[in-house]
Design a protein around this nucleic acid. Structure first.
Lengths: 188, 188
DNA sequence: GTCTATATGTGGATAGAC
DNA sequence: GTCTATCCACATATAGAC
């Protein structure tokens, strides 16, 4: 079930979208990557718009689960925020890949309206989770100098997305580290 | 000299690239926008790669000048940083447009090697300038809680670029404000 | 579910007249 | 410097056989 064609197509498409953007890959690329003909892809995803919806849906679910897993494994606010930063660091893949949400944002006008809604929901979910993490960090003293958890959360998400973008621009993961260094120093 | 065809093409291309990404516009779009035929555009910019180089070159010069102007007009570090944030806020155009550097970063693989170098130079220039602003802000006391000016600068650039991206994702400038609110509170 | 074959549009780019 | 006309590659998508 995990390695069926549909899943392989989603994997290939997500990799492509995150490295080259939504307008930067085609069904021909997926065809070459997965090893089936272009026309066969349409059987699984009738249009590229439908594919983009499926991508965002799976991405949202995956990140939600990642946040839940972090909650299970890290007891402190600081530990949870550090784990989130690490997740984005890993997703960068050495400066070759972006968060799908970041990648889709620049291609906004090429995407169906449904994906725009999905992007809004994704960001709302992330900001809400990060806000709770900051709130916990105040309570347990594991994050320094927290003024306003909600404002911190909005800034935090922009910071790590911007840090990914900087690293992607030069394909240099050091730029991600430079951008998040100050924030990491606040985590105990 | 300011409104010749070449400049109009650059203006149209920059607007297009910043709203739809480098892969999101074509010579046909520029043709319709500027009012000359596709083939005529090739007289001014033989290839799209050459056009992208010209765009980044002009963008770099424009931002350099903007920073110089801010230096002239704002005496304090806090004032200068606030002016930079305002520049990025204005560039957002209500959530429709990104910094060219941000837009190009996601299309990295479609761009000529020369542009990648230009992006690196652009970011280096910006980080250097912001670092000096933070240093001044420590001296004159106009920016609160500055730990390390260089680290602050890297984080600052990622923050405002990420904030633009968030606002662009939902075409909602409020998200830019939410992301930069905490930073603005540190400016006197 | 995958294939071949094809339709139809658009991409960047060139040749040569004016 | 701009035009018409054209090239070729590639995009998404469909029809119908196996």
């Amino acid at each position: 079930m995990a390695n069926d064609t549909k899943t392989e197509l989603l994997n290939s498409a997500e990799r492509a979208a995150r490295t080259r953007g939504f307008d930067g890959f085609s069904y021909a690329d997926l065809s070459a990557d997965v090893g089936i003909r272009k026309a066969s892809i349409h059987h699984h995803f009738p249009t590229k718009a439908a594919l983009s919806v499926a991508l965002m849906q799976r991405y949202h679910a995956n990140l939600k689960k990642a946040c839940d897993d972090i909650d299970d494994q890290e007891p402190t606010g600081g530990g949870r925020l550090a784990a989130l930063i690490d997740r984005y660091r890993t997703a960068l893949d050495g400066g070759k890949s972006l968060c799908l949400c970041v990648s889709f944002s620049t291609s906004r006008d090429s995407l169906p309206a449904e994906v725009i809604v999905q992007i809004r929901n994704f960001r709302a979910m992330m900001v809400e989770w990060i806000t709770q993490v900051f709130t916990l960090g105040v309570t347990d003293g594991s994050i320094l100098d927290v003024r306003d958890p909600m404002a911190e959360a909005a800034a935090m998400l922009s910071l790590i997305e911007g840090a990914q973008l900087a690293a992607r621009a030069e394909e240099n993961p050091d730029l991600f580290e430079s951008a998040v260094a100050l924030m990491q120093q606040r985590l105990q």
